[in-house]
Design a protein around this nucleic acid. Structure first.
Lengths: 143, 143
DNA sequence: AATGTCACTTGTGAATTGCAAGTTAAAATG
DNA sequence: CATTTTAACTTGCAATTCACAAGTGACATT
């Protein structure tokens, strides 16, 4: 059963507003992209990601995303210093949102990673199924 | 021919990053929603929208969205005080992004407007075709 | 025991946001 | 044609958020 109530007051009940309040900033979706497409799991990996997020912002966003139930965190068993972050089903459910945002930007802007764009374009449903499968298997990251 | 170059430097070439830099804030997508789904066209209409955006933020966002080519503006011929804002094809191209965000939030959060959610769920492609058609006709707003 | 790594936290200034109160130009009214 | 109203912004200011640099403490490696 989905549909959890928010612990705070929303500006409106519109579902789009709910999405925007959870994800409407310059970093959250990039972190989710790194987890979903690149298999990133640790603070350091996110920190070294291409767009160079600041460490305090990263810490804040990870906490926020965890509070929203989009990601989960646990200590690494083999190395007690490490936190391992992972997508929850709710986070994984953002795959269609990410793919549509990728397709939109690729259609109207001059962007890189055209290989990914072509792959999504060619078989969107297949791509989404592949993402889901990779996380169902808990196997190695994409790249 | 799509794919325009940005006039400024992006943090990365990733298409998702491009989307996030253009739309990653708490208001832009809500303005686009108001235009796309409710047929809003004037400053005052956006200002009176449910989430209560501040006027300076609204002015800033309208300018940003226009600079990104997502919306266009023109003076109202019958009332010289009014600016009429409208979606460009690029802005209209955001319809799939909005619908996926709506579906995601509706699936995992307790949100309102379930009528819209059910409509989208039942026939997503039909819904998108309907939005496109409404703007092709330049006819009256949805509501 | 010494050094390095990892995940943060703190401090600092700059930029952005939100709210209230103007301002300007163009209708509408009397 | 003078006054009022309306629409679309500005401006000022306090509060929040952001980016960058520099710690800190727990743990791992040597």
């Amino acid at each position: 059963m989905p549909a959890k109530k928010p612990a705070f007051k929303r500006r409106s009940g519109c579902p789009l507003n709910a999405s925007v309040e959870m994800l409407g900033d310059r970093w959250s979706l990039l972190i989710i992209r790194d987890m979903m497409l690149l298999g990133y799991r640790t603070f350091k990996e996110f920190l070294n990601s291409h767009e160079r997020i600041a460490s305090n912002i990263l810490a804040d966003r990870l906490l926020r995303l965890e509070n929203y139930g989009i990601i989960a965190s646990a200590r690494d068993l083999s190395d007690g210093r490490k936190q391992i972050y992972s997508l929850t089903p709710k986070g994984l459910g953002l795959a269609p949102v990410l793919t549509e945002m990728v397709l939109w930007a690729a259609a109207y802007e001059d962007t890189g990673n055209q290989a990914l764009v072509r792959l999504i374009h060619k078989d969107k449903d297949g791509f989404l199924a592949q993402v889901r499968k990779r996380f169902a298997n808990r196997s190695s990251p994409a790249k």
